[in-house]
Amino acid sequence: MWQLPLHTGATPWTRLTTILIPSFAPRKLFHVGTDVSTEEALTNASEILSSALQTAYQSAENPDSSQSPVIMGLAQLIENAQTLVDAVLERDFPTDTPGEK
Score class of each variant (00 low, 15 high):
Ser59Cys: 12
Asn62Trp: 04
Asp64Val: 00
Leu6Asp: 08
Leu89Thr: 00
Phe24Met: 00
Ile19Arg: 12
Thr14His: 12
Val70Pro: 10
Leu29Arg: 09
Ala52Val: 13
Gln58Arg: 15
Ala60Pro: 13
Ser46Phe: 02
Ile78His: 03
Gly33Ala: 15
Thr43Gly: 03
Val70Arg: 13
Gln3Met: 07
Met1Glu: 10
Glu100Met: 04
Leu77Asp: 08
Phe93Gly: 05
Leu49Ser: 04
Gln3Phe: 02
Thr34Trp: 09
Val70Lys: 04
Trp13Arg: 14
Leu49Ala: 05
Leu53Trp: 02
Ser66Gln: 07
Ile78Trp: 06
Arg27His: 03
Asp86Thr: 07
Thr55Met: 06
Pro98Arg: 12
Arg27Gln: 06
Val88Pro: 08
Val36Glu: 07
Pro98Gln: 08
Val36Lys: 13
Leu89Lys: 10
Leu49Gln: 04
Glu61Lys: 13
Pro63Leu: 13
Pro22Gln: 13
Leu49Gly: 03
Arg27Trp: 00
Tyr57Thr: 11
Ser68Gln: 10
Ser46Tyr: 04
Trp2Leu: 05
Leu89Tyr: 00
Asp35Asn: 12
Asp86Ile: 03
Leu49His: 05
Val85Gly: 11
Pro12Glu: 07
Glu40Phe: 10
Pro94Val: 03
Asp86Pro: 00
Leu4Val: 13
Met1Asn: 03
Gln58Thr: 08
Ile21Met: 05
Ala25Asp: 11
Met72Gly: 01
Ser68His: 06
Leu16Cys: 00
